[in-house]
Simulated assay, not measured.
Amino acid sequence: MITYQDAPLPKFGNYSTLGIGKPGEIVVLSGQLGADADGNFPTSDGVEQVKATFDNLGVALAAAGLGFEHVIGFRTYLVGREMVPDFMKGRMEKFPEIYPSGVYPPNTLLIIGGLVEEAARVEIEALAVRPAAS
């Protein structure tokens, strides 16, 4: 991912203002929730749901032969403004593992009234770019 140093700096968390994918196929990941493989939410804790959601994104990326380094943007949906601190904490706990360089993709954050499952507190979708064949 290429980022521009002269782009506006993020004001509300750890993310890049923009990202530009290198040539290759675009891969769109639908919104992932913090549920396990059986569709159960092992916890109602917001921080843990955020971390589980990133884990599920990792599984989806791996299925496409990609990793988090291929992600050029996230769109995050949180149920209620009270989820923002849990999201920030969960992301700060997870990002050093998935982005050891400290360079994060852009993220758009939306506050919504609910998700497809009542127990879901967060949903994150991603846009990634598959590297061009050499």
Results as ranks from 00 to 15, higher is better:
86 D>V: 06
81 R>W: 03
78 L>F: 07
76 T>S: 10
77 Y>K: 07
68 F>M: 14
116 V>T: 12
109 L>D: 02
108 T>G: 11
111 I>E: 10
94 K>F: 01
72 I>E: 04
73 G>A: 07
69 E>Y: 06
62 A>H: 04
65 G>K: 01
86 D>E: 13
91 R>Y: 14
99 Y>G: 07
104 Y>G: 06
94 K>H: 08
119 A>R: 11
95 F>S: 11
56 N>V: 02
78 L>D: 00
86 D>M: 10
76 T>Y: 01
59 V>I: 13
107 N>Q: 15
54 F>C: 01
58 G>F: 03
102 G>W: 03
99 Y>A: 12
125 E>N: 10
82 E>Q: 14
88 M>W: 11
105 P>E: 11
98 I>A: 02
58 G>D: 08
83 M>H: 08
103 V>N: 11
74 F>H: 03
122 V>P: 02
56 N>C: 03
116 V>D: 09
97 E>N: 07
85 P>D: 15
118 E>C: 02
103 V>T: 14
77 Y>I: 04
66 L>F: 07
68 F>D: 11
126 A>D: 01
100 P>W: 00
126 A>W: 00
66 L>N: 01
89 K>T: 15
99 Y>W: 11
52 A>G: 08
86 D>S: 14
122 V>M: 06
70 H>R: 12
57 L>P: 00
81 R>P: 02
111 I>Q: 09
71 V>Y: 04
105 P>H: 09
124 I>F: 01
85 P>Y: 13
109 L>P: 01
65 G>L: 00
54 F>N: 02
100 P>N: 05
64 A>D: 12
95 F>L: 13
117 E>C: 11
111 I>G: 05
115 L>C: 14
58 G>W: 02
102 G>Y: 05
93 E>Y: 08
108 T>E: 11
89 K>Y: 13
125 E>Y: 00
93 E>H: 09
114 G>I: 03
119 A>D: 13
109 L>W: 00
97 E>R: 09
126 A>I: 01
91 R>A: 13
